[in-house]
Every structure is written in structure tokens, then in C-alpha cells.
Amino acid sequence: MTSTPAYAKQLRQRVLELCSRKRTSHIGGAFSVADILAVLYAEILDITADEPDAPGRDRLFFSKGHACTALYAMLELRGFFKGYDLLEQFTENGTYFTSHVNHNLPGVELSTGSLGHALGVSCGSALAGKRRRQPWSVFSILSDGELDEGSNWEAILFAAHHKLDNLVAVIDYNKIQSFGAVSEIMNLEPLADKFKAFNWEVEEVDGHALPALQDVFMRFKESRNGRPKCVIAHTVKGKGVSFMENDLAWHYRSPSEADVLKAISELEAV
């Protein structure tokens, strides 16, 4: 069994390879969510690569579809892509490896890429789980920028009203959205207070502290107290590579060969 820190490290290395080789964007948002995914897939989610659609599995909806490299790399590490060659096939003609996540791939619950969709769909799944008294949980990973979308706030109202306590929303709060700082484009603060006011149970956590993430995910997953849960994960865009951290440019730029060499040495040193 691979350790969580090893997953996180391998995930970032794979993301770096994918983004540099295929000249794709969004490495910053993939690195910010990397530790969240590593903890969920290593320690929290009840899933199996042999049966990706097992009825009793936990569901993970990945709303920030643009950070697909992180989810693809994680699913590959967990063995979901047997028979595929992610590095070869990513974004290539005729493959399902689009650069926004694609539900035609095993282990991907929902295609996303248009923001503000997955939380509402997660609510539908969670509602079905409640109505049929199922033990499984629903996790939904959102970006901070997509909280601008009104559809999310419809879903946030809905989840609390219908007491979807089998639903955990995780906000990858890296503070940078497509065209600048979240605080300057559409301030979300006080974000925790907003979720609390909407009757969610909320905890803020360092989104790169693996034991803290593991602790809150485990507690929230097991708690059935009539309230949906929200983890506000304070993260760093580009986390793990010093020259990418907190820099808007890495929402778009794909790493050059020189960038890759420098990044590899930094990721290796962790």
C-alpha cells in the first residue's frame, strides 16, 4: 500500500509530466488540490479499481474539471486506468482524456469543465443515498472561483434544507481564479461564515497538511448529524514548486524543459 505522502508526491510528478509534455494549462490548480486528492484516495474513499461503478462505493465528484491532470494522475496511481496509457493518450485525438474531466473514463463519476455543476449533481446522488438509506458518502471538490456561480448557492441551500449529512463539499481555496485574485474579482469572505449561515457544518484546514485533512475528512464522513459538511481547505496555487506558487501565470502556462528540470528537483526533495 502506497503511503499518502508518496501518493501526493507521485501525483505532482505525473501532473508535471502531463502538463509539460502535452503543453496544457492549469498546473497551478492541479498542484493546489493534489494533497486533498491524495488523502481522499489513499485513506478515505471506499472505492475499488476492479469495480469502478460498485453500487456501494463512495462517490467523488470533481467539480474543478480544468484541474483534470490531478484527478487523472490520482486514478492512474490507484489502478483505474489499466489498459490505458495516460501519458501517451492525454489530450490525443480520439481518446477520452480531454483536458476537462471525462465520465467516459473508469473512476470518473461526472464530466465537469463547466463550473458550478457538480455540487448540485452531488446533492442528487446524496439525496438518493438518503432516501434509500445507503451507507456510502458523497464528496464534492470545488474550486474557490466557481463559487461565483449562482447554481452552487442554490445547491448549498438545498443540501442543508434536505439535511444531506452524507455530503462533504471540499473547497480548494487557493485564492487565485482565472483572471486574478479571488479577493479582487469576487470576494468570498467571510466564506466559513457563509456556509455556517446556510446551516452547513464547516471546518477550515491547511489544505496541504495531510494528517489534518485525513482527520477532518474521516470525522465528516462518519458524522450523520443532519447537516452537510464543508471543508474549506486553504491551499496554495502551484503548491510544491516554488516558482509556480501563488502565481496567476501558472493557471495557463505549461512548463518548459528548463521549468521541468527545476520543478523535478524541488518535488524530489520533498
Binding site: 455543476h117 448540485g120 449533481v121 452531488s122 442528487g124 438518493a128
Partner: peptide
Amino acid sequence: QNMTQVAAGL
């Protein structure tokens, strides 16, 4: 919007 998303989830 949410009704339709919930429908897709169900």
C-alpha cells in the same frame, strides 16, 4: 438549475 442538477444526480 439546481433542480436539473439534482435530477441528474438522482
